Computed example of a mutant assay.
Amino acid sequence: MKRVLIVDDAAFMRMSIRSMLSNHDFEVVGEAENGLMAVEKYKELQPDIVTMDITMPEMDGLQALREIKKIDAGAAVVMVSALGQEARMKEAIIYGAKGFIVKPFKEEIIVAALSKL
């Protein structure tokens, strides 16, 4: 069972992703509402996968991705963002994201993306 950290500033989105993953072979080990918390939770929980929103307060997802990659170069981070963020998604891939999912998404899309990791 893969252990997942969900990072999104919207509680509804975290709850939605948690619900989708719980129906499959994933264990949600933690949640964070901004990039700063994501980095701390990553150190604490050492999840197998992180779903990371791009636009968040305090520290955005791209900066959090870079910080997590400094801690663990092999970290599996999948960016989750709204339409219109294509340029930032490309930047995330350059920084080492393993993939990206565009909101709104269906359960089978996120499950398929995370199952590949």
Rank of each mutant, 00 (worst) to 15 (best):
I68F: 14
V7W: 06
H24Y: 14
A87H: 07
A97L: 07
E27Q: 11
G30K: 04
I71R: 06
M52V: 02
A10Q: 13
M15I: 10
Q63E: 15
I110A: 04
V4Q: 05
A11H: 09
M56D: 03
S16A: 13
E44Q: 14
T55A: 10
E58S: 12
E86K: 14
A75D: 07
V111F: 11
P57S: 09
L114P: 00
K106I: 13
G30D: 10
A97R: 05
F26W: 06
Y95M: 15
S22W: 02
M37A: 15
V50D: 10
V4L: 03
K41I: 11
N34H: 06
V111M: 02
K116P: 01
L62R: 00
G99E: 03
D25K: 13
R66M: 15
K116A: 15
A76G: 07
V29G: 12
D48T: 13
A87D: 13
R18Y: 03
A75N: 05
E27W: 06
E44K: 15
K98M: 08
A10D: 09
A64Y: 03
A112L: 07
A97E: 04
M89Q: 10
L114R: 00
R18Q: 12
V80S: 02
S22A: 15
E31K: 12
A87Q: 14
I17N: 04
K70G: 04
S16P: 00
E67P: 08
F100I: 08
S19L: 13
A112H: 10
Y95L: 13
M20E: 03
V28F: 04
F26N: 00
I93A: 05
I110N: 02
H24E: 14
I93S: 02
I101V: 15
D25W: 08
L21H: 07
D72R: 02
